[in-house]
Design a protein around this nucleic acid. Structure first.
Length: 596
DNA sequence: GCCGTTTTCGGCCCGACTGTTTTCAGTCG
């Protein structure tokens, strides 16, 4: 019996989004459209495999999935297709859906161009615009053609539509610093990044900056004159949009001090979180916008009465909510938790006591053992684990048992120096041991037993099929000497997709064996991501937040790991490297085994 | 089509901007 090809969460989400887009073009009931879009987004952000959820008969537990969409997904997974969806995909060509990628081209325009001029692809759209065939259509003019051509151009030049937070954040902070420097000190009263950057999302669509100033025009002019600006996309009195050389769009909005709370809330998003908050406000008789609350007349306050909030927390409190940390604002249950005053106290930078995964010149790092130790101490860490690559990783000169012995001497000497000087710091000896293609490890059990911390990671044969790579990883997890699973999915944001590994089984095995799950803080990795981190907690796993530093500057990125952890609802108590040294070591497998 | 601190029906967020318009529809964030 042959099974249909197994659909991934992303594929199911894409199909549902495709259905939503086609319903939009066909001008279906707008709430039905939203339902498909919500379900697609919900499944895209799911930690568990949709097939497993389906097998357990729990599709309807997915937020946004009810009977109708649930049944359709069931069909889709069982047969590889759904008759109703197939008909929709047949009716509206993919090219017409693609046309909606062009800026300012929505479903209404796409539909009319398709129906009235037979345009059914972006290419056909370009040709028609070039030939001036669009201006005859009611509602279109020469300017529309120009705009469409420009939009198509933009589409083809912009390869990645989202920018890594690792790139966007320094750029945004740099622009804020430059803007302050360019203006008299008192011009800007407050300024902060908002949007997905403030939420520490792993990729950023565009940068939103919010500021309070009594002289908005002055601020706008200074902003548009910054040297990074390649193109000015919009220039209003309180709002400007610019595009930087790398294609990143940055929006700056100036508001009055009394609107700061509502404006910061509004521009931080996410859209889904804001919708949930506004719905809640409406139920209490208030309409919420970026300026504040306006009474609708359905509550106690007289219609039209306004409330302003200098701080975000005041707005949340007025609605009966705890202040929601930006990282949680994704409408993943945070509004309800805030109502019940049961939001978690998220892990913060200051909680980290040390790190358990980093490299030195013994493998592919550029800092010596002592240099890395000094850098760790400068950050206020109490411990840092030297975990160079083991043998088995082809491209890197790995560390074998012999080299480890020499390294141990160096580490012992550094620790002795700390003891003499009365310095409360301890270097640990570890390894980032290679999980080989067959699941064997790059070091023997005997050697690993002599190490303080063992991180096990996959760097090769990442294209193995789901079953193979999962079994390979499980073998490492069940090894009694492996303490931490390093960057579990192997993804590189924007350049390499995650392996096909079955994270649900991996996390369950980590829970069962007491293997710690890493959040690798490298902004190109952020692995595990926010969603898997939260799932790991649900299953009862422990987390480690590590920079995987390869040089002394490599420890500066810890904040990205913290941001990802916070997005995953992680508290300090969930993270082993927030513990003092002895308590942290007691969480690791080897020590537990020795105690037995 | 989904959902429930107005739960099995009747709701479902808000404002700015743009281009083509003489009052607005469409798009976006």
């Amino acid at each position: 019996m042959t099974e249909p090809t197994r659909l991934t969460n992303r594929q199911v989400a894409d199909i549902l989004a495709g259905v939503g887009a086609r319903l939009q073009i066909l001008d279906a009931n707008r709430f039905r459209i939203i339902a498909f879009q919500n379900a697609a987004e919900s499944i895209r952000n799911l930690a568990q495999d949709i097939n497993a959820i389906n097998a357990a008969g729990e599709l309807k537990n997915i937020p946004g999935v009810g009977k109708g969409i649930g049944d359709a997904i069931h069909h889709l997974l069982a047969n590889g297709s759904d008759p109703e969806f197939d008909a929709l995909f047949e009716q509206v060509p993919q090219g017409v859906v693609d046309m909606m990628q062009v800026p300012d081209m929505g479903p209404k325009k796409a539909k009319r161009l398709w129906e009235e001029l037979g345009i059914d692809s972006v290419d056909a759209l370009r040709t028609a615009a070039e030939q001036g065939k669009l201006r005859d259509l009611k509602g279109f003019g020469a300017k529309s053609e120009e705009k469409i051509l420009k939009g198509i151009e933009l589409l083809s030049t912009r390869v990645d539509e989202r920018t890594s937070i690792g790139v966007a954040r320094p750029l945004a902070l740099g622009m804020i610093a430059a803007l302050k420097a360019a203006l008299p000190p008192e011009t800007i009263e407050r300024i902060e990044v908002a949007g997905s950057l403030r939420r520490w999302k792993e990729t950023i669509g565009d940068v939103d900056i919010l500021c309070v100033s009594g002289q908005p025009v002055l601020v706008m002019e200074a902003f548009r004159s910054l040297p990074e600006v390649a193109h000015i996309a919009g220039a209003g009195e309180t709002k400007s949009s610019v595009v930087l050389g790398n294609g990143l769009q940055v929006d700056l909005r100036v508001v009055e001090a009394k609107n700061w709370g509502a404006a910061l809330q509004y521009f931080t998003g996410s859209k889904e979180h804001n919708v949930a908050v506004r719905e809640l406000a409406l139920k209490q008789g208030w309409s919420l916008n970026e300026y504040g609350l306006t009474a609708t007349g359905s509550g106690d306050a007289a219609e039209g009465e306004q409330r302003f909030f200098a701080e975000e927390a005041d707005l949340y409190a007025f609605l009966g909510l705890e202040w929601v940390p930006p990282e949680l604002r994704e409408n993943r249950g945070e509004v309800q938790a805030a109502r019940q005053h049961r939001l978690p106290t998220l892990v913060a930078m200051g909680d980290l006591q040390g790190e358990l995964h980093g490299h030195t010149t013994y493998s592919d790092g550029t800092g010596s053992v002592a240099e890395m130790a000094e850098a760790a101490r400068a950050r206020g860490y109490r411990y840092w684990s030297v975990s160079d690559h083991s043998v088995g990783l082809g491209i890197v000169q790995g560390v074998d048992a012999d080299k480890l012995r020499r390294q141990r001497v160096e580490i012992d000497a550094y620790n002795a120096h700390c003891t003499e000087q009365g310095i409360d710091f301890r270097l640990l000896q570890g390894s980032e041991v290679e999980i080989l293609a067959d699941g064997a490890l790059g070091l023997s059990d005997e050697v690993m037993a002599g190490l303080d911390v063992v991180v096990a990671s996959i760097h090769s044969a990442q294209r193995q099929d789901r079953e193979t790579i999962t079994a390979r990883c499980l073998k490492a997890i069940y090894n009694p000497h492996v303490d931490i699973l390093g960057h579990p999915t192997g993804r590189l944001i924007g350049s390499r997709p995650p392996t096909e590994i079955d994270m649900e089984r991996v996390l369950q095995a980590c829970r069962e064996t007491g293997t710690v799950v890493e959040i690798n803080a490298n902004p190109a990795r952020l692995d595990v991501n926010d969603v898997y981190a939260r799932r790991a907690l649900e299953l009862g796993c422990k987390i480690a937040i590590n920079c995987d530093a390869h040089d002394v500057l490599g420890m500066e990125i810890a904040e990205f790991g913290i941001g990802t952890a916070r997005r995953g609802w992680v508290t300090a108590a969930d993270v082993v490297n927030t513990l003092p040294l002895d308590a942290m070591l007691a969480c690791l497998k080897d020590v537990q085994a020795k105690d037995d």
